[in-house]
């Protein structure tokens, strides 16, 4: 699995995941609610640059992140310029991109297991509604394990259909994929029960 995490030992890397998420939410809200001011955009841009520099990621990483959302930018600019004055259109696009690039900073500096743990503990208040945080953690782990298995099924089906000379179409592809996956799910359930986890 390709994770977008970039290893490092900066202040941001060492900060607890929950704190980072809260910090991000506060910044995003501040940027949104002060959108009318001419100062917001420059201040936000400086904030983002500072964050990436503190994390030791460098300004090139910001460009990479902006490039990653290029389709969002393109679609936004096209629709906004049709309906809104150019100044407002570019300010809106700038704001969305800034917040998205800032959010990426969390993912870039936090390991996936740490974020999964943070997710699990943030679910604690939902206990009263019958949600079991440890159970959710289990399903998340199991899904990560299962993705390569299902991707393997998909590859097998594609090969088998090419070998038979059948044109690979979504309907003829999806049904065997679902059948194999659901049988795999039954096997997994047996294994879970056998391992005393059921």
């Amino acid at each position: 699995m390709i994770a977008v995490y970039r290893p490092g030992s900066s202040l941001l890397h060492r900060m607890p995941a929950g704190l980072k998420v809260l910090g991000f939410m506060a910044s995003a809200l501040a940027i949104t609610f002060t959108a009318g001011s001419v100062w917001t955009q420059p201040v936000a841009a400086v904030l983002v640059c500072a964050g990436y520099l503190v994390a030791g990621l460098g300004l090139r990483e910001i460009l990479r992140q902006v490039w990653a959302v290029r389709w969002v930018i393109l679609i936004m600019l096209v629709t906004q310029f049709v309906f809104l004055p150019p100044v407002v259109a570019s300010a809106n696009t700038g704001r969305v991109v800034t917040i998205m690039v800032l959010a990426a900073l969390i993912t870039l500096t936090t390991r996936i297991p740490a974020l999964l743990d943070a997710t699990e503990s943030s679910l604690a208040p939902l206990r009263r509604f019958g949600v079991n945080p440890a159970g959710v953690g289990l399903v998340l782990g199991m899904t990560i394990t299962t993705i390569p298995v299902i991707a393997g099924f998909a590859a097998t089906i594609r090969e088998a259909q090419r070998a038979r000379g059948v044109p690979v179409r979504i309907t003829t592809f999806a049904v065997p994929l679902l059948v194999m996956s659901l049988k795999h799910s039954d096997d997994l359930a047996d294994a879970l029960t056998a391992r005393g986890a059921g």
């Binding site: 289990l138 199991m142 899904t143 991707a151 996956s181 659901l182 986890a197």
Partner: peptide, 23 residues
């Protein structure tokens, strides 16, 4: 929201299918 073992593995497997459909 009370799921048994077979529900749980089906949820995980379907989440994985949605992921694979985006690869």
């Amino acid at each position: 929201l009370r799921f048994d073992v077979r529900d749980i593995t089906r949820i995980a497997v379907f989440a994985a299918i949605i992921a694979v459909l985006g690869l």
